[in-house]
Design a protein around this nucleic acid. Structure first.
Lengths: 241, 241
DNA sequence: AAGTTTCTTTATCGAGCGTTACAGAATCAG
DNA sequence: CTGATTCTGTAACGCTCGATAAAGAAACTT
């Protein structure tokens, strides 16, 4: 929310504003500990770094923030909760992520690039279609029932922040589009091999599976019992027959 | 949260504490406008009413509160938002519902007793099984895509407030148990008539449908387009074949 | 009518919220 | 080294949060 401080500072506080902005992005030269992020990686990329380096691992911080948002939700997680759990000061948080919303978006992006992406990678290696789809669903359920049933961060985000937050809508929609396309390709190939019937087209079947997975992740919150949900996966898979 | 004021007041402020507590519950004698609620209906039921009657319609207030919680969620809805939208003062709200959480639980209960219950009533009148199930799912989707895609209050509640809020878990679980049992009965009768195959038992099929409905309601928030979700219902119904 | 109780209205309360200001520490160029 | 710049840690900032106190209005019993 609002304008971000550091952006202006970079323009007005430069050592010599008349020096032309050249050189490699500083992000390539950073020492290992300090992963650049957000404002920094965008704004300072015109100039050599000439300042104190970040003391904490940004990605690790995002990961811990994701944990907190995941179990408590956005509104119920305060900035002080976050700073304590990440082990950084409030100034550092705002310098690195802009505001609470920026950190939330970073956490959601981290969720996409780690957990959701890993599930899709495993899908590509799948042998039998049914086994691959079953593995995808059960793995996601396994994660969702953890921590007392925290569900799926993306589904939680949708339920808490839509229809208001259109950025979240776009991000989660992209995530699910990626899942659907991966599944579509998997099903299309399987149908060509004659492993599944042609009763429904692959795209519709993939959409069905994505939506059914959403339901599984909600049910996993209501009743965090993976074994109780397994038979439902069996039923869903009969749609491939 | 915390102890509720009026309960103590009833004990300590009675005109004559030595009069034995007898008589009909006052709830039966109330004038039409003032529906009793919560503390009142429980605590004062020992005695004849002898005080100012409530000026606003409690059920209408709960209905409007439900609207607000439904579109914005629990945390993002402030007590002042509520009082303005209900047209009552803060004192009245706290006198009638205890606290914000009490009003939320009342709203969730109202949701159960109106929308969710209506869907199940329609189910009982169903002719053909498939048509009845399809009608249930599409009707719920139709409501969920409304208002820009506010989804289902129960699913939203689960995603925002679990695993922390166990009262919500119990309420929503009860709601879904009721749906599952109604569907189980419907499917069991249909199987006896030979309308559906015996590949999966009715109970598992019903659980599958409830979970799939959860997914539909999430997808309805992400993409509030009822027509795009219809084909997925078709796929789900093939599980009955 | 008087007396009792509850509801409504208004004005707060303390706590916590997200955010920012500022001084000092750290890093790098020259 | 000096100077420029950014990060860190702390202390606030203004604001809104949920909840309550108090006084007057309204309803019911007797």
């Amino acid at each position: 929310m609002g304008t971000v401080g550091p952006r202006l500072a970079i323009v007005s506080n430069r050592a010599n504003p008349d020096v032309p902005l050249t050189g490699e992005p500083v992000t390539a030269r950073r020492p290992t500990g300090a992963t650049p992020f957000l404002d920094r990686s965008i704004q300072i990329s015109y100039r050599e770094a000439m300042a104190r380096t970040r003391a904490f691992d940004t990605e690790a911080a995002v990961s811990r923030a994701m944990d907190l948002f995941w179990t408590r939700g956005y509104e119920a997680t305060s900035v002080r909760d976050l700073t304590q759990h990440l082990g950084i000061g409030q100034g550092s948080l705002y310098a690195a992520f802009g505001d609470k919303d920026g950190l939330y978006r970073a956490a959601l992006e981290h969720y996409r690039s780690t957990l959701a992406a890993a599930a899709l990678r495993d899908l590509a290696e799948g042998a039998d279609v049914r086994a691959a789809v079953r593995a995808l669903l059960t793995e996601r359920v396994r994660i969702a029932v953890g921590q007392g049933g925290r569900g799926c961060l993306a589904v939680n985000a949708v339920c808490e922040r839509l229809p208001e937050d259109t950025a979240t809508r776009r991000t989660v929609r992209d995530m699910q589009d990626a899942s659907r396309e991966a599944l579509t390709e998997l099903l299309r190939a399987a149908r060509e091999r004659g492993e599944i019937a042609a009763r429904h087209d692959p795209h519709t079947l993939a959409s069905f599976l994505v939506t059914f997975l959403n339901g599984l992740l909600v049910s996993a919150k209501i009743t965090p019992d993976a074994r109780a949900l397994e038979p439902l996966v069996d039923v869903a898979l009969t749609a491939l027959d």
